[in-house]
């Protein structure tokens, strides 16, 4: 009987360890998402809105997943340096100046970018900080 109990406890703990062991990328993603959300609230939400809905024709929405996907490599640079180029988002034209956020460190840019590209109906997955850092060094 005693052997039986010990065995079952052992088995249970093995199962628990396996279940609780997520892979590193999932943990990183969750980490980026929660920090990115705070940065979004502080820096982006004013114009782009709580749900990424944008503001009239002054600020484009962040819900155009096709646009975000095809411009994936430029997003980090836009966040850091701002832009005033004309963009077509959801078939509507936008041309207003977006300010840059030079005060954001590379890791902040990575986190807020991961947050945006995995919220508001977007689902692009994780981008590690090292990759964003390289992109930021090669901004035009």
């Amino acid at each position: 009987m005693r052997k039986y109990i010990i065995n079952s406890i052992f088995l249970l703990s093995v199962v628990a360890i396996i279940v609780s062991c997520q892979n590193q990328e999932t943990i990183d993603l969750q980490n980026y998402m929660s920090n990115g959300k705070d940065i979004y609230k502080a820096k982006c939400q004013n114009c782009h809105g709580e749900n990424g809905e944008g503001l009239g024709q002054l600020a484009p929405p962040l819900t155009d997943s096709v646009f975000l996907k095809s411009n994936k490599k430029r997003l980090a640079c836009i966040i850091r340096n701002g832009t005033d180029e004309k963009m077509t988002i959801h078939g509507k034209e936008y041309q207003e100046k977006m300010p840059g956020f030079p005060e954001l460190a590379d890791i902040d840019v990575a986190q807020v970018m991961v947050f945006v590209t995995n919220s508001f109906g977007n689902n692009q997955g994780f981008v590690p900080y090292s990759q964003v850092s390289t992109q930021l060094q090669n901004c035009k």
């Binding site: 939400q45 004013n46 114009c47 809105g49 503001l55 009239g56 002054l58 600020a59 100046k97 300010p99």
Partner: peptide
């Protein structure tokens, strides 16, 4: 008009 801090939120709400 070029305000990027509180004005967009203000006018979003005033809208």
């Amino acid at each position: 008009t070029s305000c990027t801090t509180i004005c967009p939120t203000m006018h979003r709400n005033l809208m």
